[in-house]
């Protein structure tokens, strides 16, 4: 049993160290993280410093602007930590490399997920201190330590769910060959209905109701709001919700791989 897990652990470890050597890509993500927080800290400061801003007066306004910067720091941390797993799987299917990988004594998609987890962990660990630094710098305030811990915990679960979703998108290559359109649609739905840049609480009522009923909200808005409103009960609720989605996503990935292999056997690798 430990041998079976050991293979995947070794793949995850190798991916972790390999990505660590790709410094340019990491620096690019850190720079983007910095700029997006800078821009949105300017947006929130401008909005809340306006005399006609709703419910905004002096210190309270600055506090709210700061809370939104911390919210974005958390949601972007989850998004920017994601490796482009769907592109790797798509490339294996398109080039036919998958045929060689299927012969290995381990699950193809399991190996890819292990690689993705190694990559994801590296990015999360690298981006986290920069997120704290930039958010403190641009918001002018520290977030509640308990809130950060809860948000990080839920954030890791959300990131794992996202990774599984990317694997499912990549496996669509068995039928579509080019998965980018599926990825783009998924990504944009996540941006808007997940509340990547703007918390769902700001949305118009009808859109808020719709977004809260979909899984996207528990991936970004859920962990994001924990930073400024730490609530262990809510965190547990989110973890259970994400856990249920993780099980469903894992089943979907396994089902897609099984059906995809059948297509491959019929059409040839």
């Amino acid at each position: 049993m430990s041998g079976a897990y050991g293979k995947y652990l070794a793949i995850a470890r190798a991916a972790f160290w390999q990505r660590l050597s790709e410094r340019a890509a990491l620096i690019g993500r850190i720079a983007f993280y910095c700029l997006i927080l800078l821009v949105f800290s300017c947006v929130w400061r401008t909005i809340f410093s306006a005399p006609d801003a709703p419910g905004a007066d002096g210190e309270q306004a600055a506090q709210r602007a700061g809370d939104y910067v911390w919210y974005l720091a958390l949601t972007e941390w989850i998004m920017l930590s994601q490796p482009t797993l769907y592109l790797d799987i798509e490339s294996d299917v398109r080039t036919g490399d998958i045929a060689y990988q299927l012969a290995r004594p381990l699950s193809y998609v399991g190996g890819k997920l292990a690689e993705g987890i190694g990559d994801l962990l590296l990015r999360m660990l690298t981006l986290a201190p920069f997120g704290l630094l930039f958010a403190r710098l641009f918001s002018g305030q520290w977030a509640d330590g308990r809130g950060l811990a809860l948000a990080a915990l839920v954030g890791v679960a959300a990131a794992l769910l996202l990774l599984l979703c990317y694997a499912a998108i990549g496996l669509c290559a068995f039928w579509l060959h080019d998965c980018t359109p599926v990825y783009l649609v998924w990504q944009k739905l996540l941006f808007v209905l997940g509340g990547l840049m703007v918390p769902l609480s700001i949305y118009p009522g009808w859109l808020q109701t719709l977004a809260r009923r979909l899984p996207f909200a528990s991936m970004l808005y859920g962990p994001g709001q924990l930073v400024s409103s730490p609530d262990a009960g809510r965190a547990l609720e989110l973890l259970l919700e994400l856990g249920a989605w993780l099980v469903l996503a894992a089943l979907l990935v396994l089902g897609l791989e099984r059906r995809g292999r059948r297509v491959l056997e019929l059409a040839g690798g």
């Binding site: 909005i47 306006a50 709703p54 649609v185 944009k188 840049m197 703007v198 700001i202 859109l207």
Partner: peptide, 23 residues
Amino acid sequence: LMFVNDLIFFSTWWILMARFGHV
């Protein structure tokens, strides 16, 4: 896809303006 992508991106401004009026 690019058309939809841009519109979804712009929707952030629509949401902000609907709530705050101006930035």
